[in-house]
């Protein structure tokens, strides 16, 4: 439905990964690979804490863990990803990551 006469640009949407938000008092020890996904980055309050050295920063018990796909994926792969992680980690939300016209539709942690 369009209330205004401004045509919405048509954008090519491609599923490329998933952000899973995990509740843990410490940096969660996550598998590097889950199905077609690899662990790309973990951030806390927007600050990258994995990979690389852990910064001298306040961390809270809520970690954004970004998994990216090595090959083309579908929603079913995300379902399986959640099923595989869920018994081992307490998570609060999962956000699919899409590229729009080849550009990431998500920000990168500092």
């Amino acid at each position: 439905m369009s209330h205004l006469n401004y045509p919405k640009p048509v954008r090519k949407i491609e599923l490329v990964g998933v952000d899973v938000y995990i509740i843990s008092p410490e940096l969660p020890k996550l598998p590097k690979k889950v199905g077609p996904f690899h662990l790309d980055i973990i951030s806390n309050r927007g600050l990258k804490v994995y990979p690389g050295p852990t910064p001298e920063a306040l961390c809270v018990n809520w970690w954004r863990c970004r998994y990216k796909a090595d090959s083309p994926i579908t929603d079913k792969d995300v379902d399986n990803f959640v099923l595989e992680l869920s018994p081992h980690f307490w998570w609060s939300a999962v956000q699919k990551l899409w590229n729009y016209d080849g550009e990431p539709g998500f920000t990168v942690a500092y």
Binding site: R11, R45, G46, G105, T107, Y110
Partner: peptide
């Protein structure tokens, strides 16, 4: 906190993160 996503092709969201320790 640099947590922004396009959550559909017409909706973008930015998470406002307020923590007790912070």
């Amino acid at each position: 906190a640099a947590i922004e996503h396009w959550v559909s092709d017409e909706v973008a969201q930015c998470l406002k993160v307020i923590t007790r320790p912070g």
